[in-house]
Amino acid sequence: MSDPVAGSTGTAASGGAPLLGAADLKVTFAGRRGSPEARAVDGVHLDIAPGEIVALVGESGCGKTTLARALLGLEKPTTGQVSFDGAPLAYDSRALKAYRNRVQLVLQDPSGSLNPRHTVYEAVAEGLRIHGYTGDERAKVAEALSRAGLRPPERFFLRYPHELSGGQRQRVVIAGALVLDPELIVADEPVASLDASVRGEILALLLSLREELGLSALVVTHDLGLAWNIADRVAVMYLGRVVETGTVEEVLTSPQHPYTQALLSVLPEAQGEPVVLTGEPPDPTRIPPGCRFHARCQVLASGEAERTGVAQSCRTKELPVLSAAGTAQVACHWAAAKAGASG
């Protein structure tokens, strides 16, 4: 892995109030025809400071996209609260419209995000028109395209999505978010659909936007390698909860949770044998007792948890919800026992 971004601006480090925060957030969905409800997000505390990039990491089905939608106001929490700039998020249409002027979404598939019948100019100007912008629309669109790395911007005004490369389409999507001058963007797998040669360019763009505009970002990804290259802090999700969090250096160079260790083990640059997780993937309708990961845990399966004296707790004793503090935290009986023994 290459060097991570320097100069973390996390809440704990800066001492400032978070820009975006989630407090004990839960999102459940009713089951079909009497089946159990799905606890997609089941108690999450998460803060993002001004100018900070946080990576939300986990495999498919862990709840990270539902959490992102709740933070965007696209999904109303069952319980808990989302706050922005110190104020609780309201869910009437006027308040949400104002909120989405300050927080924008960047999706993973630029082809699906862009209307094939709309020119680049129309795609980027759409947000301005929705929000009733009364200034110089052409200048604003040109500025957004230029910031997204499409220069000279006028050369792209009349092009259609099919005339652009994948990287250029993603830059158009980013320009569509930037045109409203947001304070925070939520990027859901922002480079997953791009060729490897283009991914670095888009990540470098996101970092430059943070430097130039003070932009905050939540980057939703299954790729810990991406997190290493872009994030200040990492939150690892499993089955609706954050199971490990801390600075990118703390989590990715010294992972404490067996799930994080398994995710890291399959990276090309990882040392040792990759950990192959057995058992069923996360199912939010069937949350097991004890540690949510215990049925797939390589530490429990190997007998190491038994030797440490925590195997029974792993299977039966539920772990507390991690706080939103910027310090390194882990929800794992085995990791806690190890820390206690070494302390």
Rank of each mutant, 00 (worst) to 15 (best):
E304P: 00
T245D: 09
L224Y: 04
P4N: 14
H45G: 02
P18H: 13
S197W: 15
G135M: 14
T221E: 03
A270Y: 06
L205I: 09
S197A: 15
V41S: 06
R39Q: 15
L19W: 01
E163W: 02
V266F: 07
Q329P: 03
A17I: 05
V248N: 05
R241K: 15
S208Y: 11
A177H: 08
D188V: 09
E122C: 07
T327E: 11
K338V: 12
R292C: 06
K64G: 03
G225R: 02
E201Q: 15
K97G: 04
A40P: 01
A142V: 01
V120R: 00
A227E: 11
M1I: 08
E211T: 08
E52V: 00
P153F: 14
V173L: 09
P289K: 13
P36M: 15
T28M: 02
G15Q: 09
T28P: 04
A235E: 00
G21P: 04
A331G: 07
E318N: 03
R32L: 13
A12I: 10
L277P: 02
L74H: 02
V41L: 04
A339E: 14
P288G: 13
C62A: 12
Y99K: 11
P18R: 12
V41Q: 11
L226C: 13
C297E: 09
R33D: 15
P50M: 14
R233G: 02
G112A: 14
W334P: 00
P182S: 08
L145Q: 02
S197Q: 15
P153S: 15
V236M: 07
A40R: 05
L150T: 05
V57W: 05
E163M: 06
V44H: 02
T285K: 13
A324S: 14
A6Y: 02
R296M: 10
L319H: 00
E189P: 02
L114Y: 04
D109K: 01
G43A: 09
E318L: 04
E306N: 13
R159A: 06
E244S: 09
L145H: 00
Y99H: 09
L267Q: 06
L194S: 05
L72H: 06
G21I: 03
S165L: 04
R233S: 04
V220Q: 00
L96R: 04
R155K: 11
S165W: 06
V234M: 08
D47Y: 01
F156N: 00
G309R: 12
L264C: 05
L105S: 10
A123R: 03
G200E: 09
P77I: 07
S93M: 04
S60I: 11
T79C: 12
R296Q: 08
G21S: 15
V179I: 15
P282I: 13
T9D: 04
F156A: 03
L206K: 08
A13C: 07
L203D: 00
V275Y: 01
T9Y: 01
L74R: 02
L19V: 04
A311K: 03
A295S: 09
G16H: 06
W228V: 03
P320D: 12
G51S: 01
A262E: 07
D47Q: 04
Y238P: 00
I287N: 10
D136G: 03
L205V: 09
V234C: 05
S111M: 09
E269Y: 06
V234N: 08
